[in-house]
Design a protein around this nucleic acid. Structure first.
Lengths: 628, 628
DNA sequence: ATGTCGGCGCGCCGCCGACAA
DNA sequence: TTGTCGGCGGCGCGCCGACAT
């Protein structure tokens, strides 16, 4: 797990898989040697953060709002004291900020990259937010069945009681032993002896999350996600005797200092190599964004009224949810301080404004255009949705420099209107036009490729799209007409209607996921049509199926034969794609390439085809009873 | 207690009394605005220490071996983590290193200064080295009776059991509560509830010492003296989870870095103000020594064969013991690196070499000349003496620069002989002559004024001598003839013979202490001859007696009526003068000015005169039975 | 006078099944 | 399926006198 020494800090770098498991499903780290745009504005936001009292930066240098860089190093680190993960990224500014030749360069992303079509499976991991009982009472940890059965070593259930010792390695490589027992009525998995010590040593409290991960080499690893404590990052400021207190500068517990941001920005602006530290769980968007993603996003002609969706991590960090919204305005966040900056370019209005009160502005590359149909809640029949943990932008202007005059932006922009702050507004088209003329941004494919209504649904399977889970567009692309009460789902290109949709109003929000199975490896299925000689269709390993979501190959495979129940499969998919649990568990339809179609929990798992080489999963979040 | 903020470190400075109580009885700090000699050699020794692996100082600058400085600041500090006390001393180099006009300046010392004749009593304090039981078992602390009765708040013995809560303030001003109970058979004082917590929080172990002090304002304070852990100062290097590890530079836990010594030496040599940090418990002699003390010491014509005594702290830091020795050689410690340096000028041979194996060389101002009578053990009849904690000089040369040529010392020194290291030797007289001619050292009265045989015993009482406790000269000054088996003790100028001495061989080592009492304040003695109208003799306050040791007024007074037993008086005197316990408790004779003479433990205390205005204490460490 | 020991009581840590959501 | 609770057993902290030094 500990494999590389970072000679700068003399601290070991971390296994990338464990790092990403701790960082969460939203985090994407730039790939080595790829090209990114560095946003000093975002860096400062990351350092100052919300509520940390950084209200002015009189000494902040005059630097461009975005700087094209090559990624010279990515070190995955973990804080010695808190186990918090962070990354040190080495960056080399590139001369041609315009970046016209980027297509020949590597600008991919490591980690959970929806654009990457590598067959590298995300390692099996599971995150659970600690309950009061986990953190306080009796020193035990209630292990969710999925975690125990898929991540922990297999338990010998013939013993009475079934019990074993599990050993897990933390981010520092330290081993922790836990007594894992399966007991109680009804039976459940528990960690007992050793757990309390772990909680005390790691100073865990209810609300913190624990991550279990089965690494590729078979090692069981354990990571920590600290719950956000109130405003800002006051965690280490609490009177926590026995903890090391702040260490100056960048690094352990010091997070990112404003000084280090100024230093980085200066180096970047002067074209010299520099280094940034990124805390993935600091509730701040990445300030190093893949160049092609940014360029693709800026190719869109953003304008008010556009409908979009955006992914957020749930408050307990267990899942990712998508939220719908409408662009209310397109204007530069701080035209004076950061003229022409695309950072948080979009002012947005959310369909669920109470949950996203603090998110007023977002950057274009974080959102994905959808149809401008009216949006509805994802799961109207499921229990009240978990609160969402969303980035908390500062409620004060960052580095305001009111006396400054924009240095290379003409104030006479046509169509400027109703911007209360600057007296003008970037109308979408004009803004884009401006950006392209001024050479503000080169173009490329965005991280979440914006799709217009015309290109949404019926794209061919081979399209290398970045969609993880597309919250359903109500209508099938071009056939989408406003009043149709029976939206179609794409299952092998054939529409599927749900009973609910037939009887329901237009409030049903739907989507579909397709999973394609490889040859089954269960002994009973060895003679299936998907034997080795037929695997050539997808070139899959035995027992793996190719996963399609909404008719699109997302570049993942699964061995369906390894699941013993719907629950396990649900869990695996839910975890693999970080889909919000309530959606995943309640509103799925499975259909395999062998023709078997199943709705969650209907019949025993054995009846479901394990021989399929592809599995289509249709999600209907607006209905509990789905007819097939 | 916390009264001044040190703006440099933003750390509070410490009450001087508590600081000195923690520092130990040997420590003398220079007074503000006084003049001192700064010894870079000693500073480096203090930083490098014994066994810390500082074997070379190739980068150490060429600076004079001693630099006259004015003391611009003295800050008493305590380490945040360990409670270790240290001092930050601001120094301003003085131009006239020769220092001919020093007599008009203030060069006194704060703290336990034997030369100062102020009547400021040393505050009541008590130090105890923790036993295994104190540190480990049952969470209790066995409080020595003296500490409980003189330092703790008065206990209500009518309660059953007598119990109270005592609150003590540590060096940081933090309050600690202890349950103080008087119980058991036989009765004894114990700290129970709260003690274990204190031990754990302070990470105390058996061998560490705790200091209780009753401050002038009545506050009870508690300090810590860490036991030396093995060689050097490896205490903080141990795997002590939860402790902050080293912080670079000078200050908390970092002790004194070699770099900081180099910096200080450079500043000093160039005449610029600088700052040094001194850890009084680092087993290194002070490297900032009162100018007059150094000058007085260098006025002596040191030569081999001279007899001297030197004070050391006992290993458990509870007492101070004096050791006798003979000067074996007088030569500069490192003539190449520190030419002409008086630091550790004297090579010595100890009467008890096993206890002082590591002390090969000492600086002249640390020793006091005595008669060259054969030396004997202090307490041949008392239990085996405690091991002594003595400075551990490095067993390698400090900053050797063999190629260097002494810069302002002529190599042609007459009489140089039998120095194996340099091929010459500073014979005493010549050495002194040389020093005075070269103007190496100005002259003044030494810290322990060296006394020749001719001036030892019969000096008049008013002489302001620095003697704390003179380990007995066997014979009465001029009448000392070699074979006399009945040495005399000075009690009001009259010789006293002990039975033991009458029958014993010449192995009896003796000394005498005189305490002079003020008017007794006990009600039964109000009509005593020492009533108010007669107090004019010494101008004492009611109830105080003047203390004389060996017929010499040491500038202290005591209220004899405040003692209820010999034990209490013993303890008080023992603590006040830091006399080694075994000596103090076993070998004292008291004689008051009213004629009462008592030997330890003979009769009830009530029979002893409390009306005396002076009390003479005769110490005979060679005898248990003393006839009067 | 005080260091060390064994006794022992009590509080709390932590393991358990019973419930209920 | 799993969160929370009360029960309770066991262990160790810490208070005690006994006894020795």
């Amino acid at each position: 797990m500990i494999n590389v020494m970072d000679h700068h800090m003399n601290k070991p770098t971390l296994d990338s898989q464990l790092w990403h498991a701790c960082a969460g499903g939203m985090v994407q780290m730039p790939e080595l040697n790829s090209k990114i745009f560095y946003f000093p504005q975002g860096h400062a936001e990351h350092a100052g953060g919300a509520g940390t009292g950084v209200t002015s930066a009189a000494g902040f240098p005059r630097v461009p709002p975005y700087i094209l860089c090559a990624v010279s190093a990515v070190n995955f680190m973990a804080d010695t004291n808190t186990d918090e993960v962070y990354a040190k990224i080495g960056l080399v500014p590139l001369k041609n900020n315009n970046e016209n030749d980027y297509d020949n360069s590597n600008d991919g992303f490591l980690g959970f990259d929806r654009n990457k079509n590598d067959n590298q499976d995300k390692p099996t991991s599971f995150a659970k937010t600690l309950t009061q009982s986990d953190a306080n009472n009796g020193g035990g940890f209630s292990v969710p069945r999925y975690c125990a059965e898929t991540i922990f070593p297999r338990l010998d259930y013939t013993a009475e009681p079934p019990v074993q010792t599990v050993v897990a390695k933390d981010v520092h490589g330290k081993l922790w032993k836990f007594r894992h027992i399966y007991r109680g009525t009804p039976r459940r998995h528990l960690l007992t002896t050793g757990w309390s010590n772990f909680v005390n040593q790691k100073k865990l409290v209810a609300g913190d999350s624990i991550v279990f991960l089965r690494a590729d080499n078979g090692d069981l690893c354990v990571g920590i996600r600290r719950a956000k404590r109130g405003i800002g990052r006051g965690f280490l400021d609490s009177n926590c005797s026995g903890w090391n207190t702040a260490v100056a500068g960048v690094g352990d517990s010091g997070k990112v200092s404003v000084d280090s941001v100024v230093e980085a920005a200066n180096l970047a602006a002067s074209g010299r190599p520099f280094e940034v530290v990124f805390y993935p769980r600091a509730s701040t968007p990445e300030f190093c964004v893949k160049a092609s993603t940014v360029k693709a996003a800026m190719r869109i002609q953003w304008c008010p009224g556009m409908r979009f969706k955006m992914a957020f991590e749930t408050e307990d960090s267990s899942r990712i949810s998508w939220f719908m919204g409408t662009i209310s305005s397109v204007d530069v966040d701080d035209q004076v301080r950061w003229p022409n900056s695309p950072w948080r370019l979009l002012q947005v209005a959310w369909d669920e404004p109470d949950l996203l009160q603090n998110v007023k502005r977002v950057s274009p590359w974080l959102v994905e255009l959808v149809s401008n149909m009216p949006a509805i809640h994802l799961s109207p029949f499921s229990p009240p949705r978990k609160k969402l943990r969303v980035p908390q932008p500062p409620d004060f202007p960052l580095f305001p420099m009111p006396s400054m005059i924009p240095n290379h932006i003409p104030n006479s922009i046509q169509g400027a209107r109703h911007n209360p702050q600057f007296g003008f507004d970037h109308h979408l088209h004009q803004h884009h036009q401006y950006l392209s003329k001024i050479q503000s941004f080169p173009f490329g494919s965005p991280r979440f490729p914006p799709r217009s209504i015309e290109t949404t649904q019926e794209t061919e399977e081979k399209e290398n799209v970045s969609c993880l889970l597309t919250i359903g567009n109500k209508c099938n692309s071009k056939s989408s007409s406003k009043d149709e009460k029976k939206p179609t789902f794409s299952l092998f290109g054939q529409p599927i209607f749900t009973e609910q949709q037939l009887s329901d109003s237009s409030s049903g929000e739907t989507g579909s996921v397709v999973v394609q199975n490889g040859p089954g490896s269960s002994s009973s299925d060895e003679a299936s049509p998907w034997s080795k000689d037929r695997r050539s269709e997808f070139g899959l390993e035995t027992g793996h199926c190719k996963i399609f979501m909404e008719s699109e190959d997302v570049g993942r495979t699964l061995d369906l034969t390894s699941f013993r129940s719907y629950e396990e499969l649900h869990r695996k998919l839910s975890d693999m794609f970080s889909v919000e649990k309530s959606v995943m568990m309640n509103n799925l339809i499975y259909r395999t390439s062998t023709g078997a179609v199943k709705h969650t929990g209907d019949e025993p798992f054995s009846e479901f085809s394990k021989t399929a080489q592809r599995l289509t999963i249709v999600m209907d979040s607006g209905s509990d009873n789905v007819g097939v």
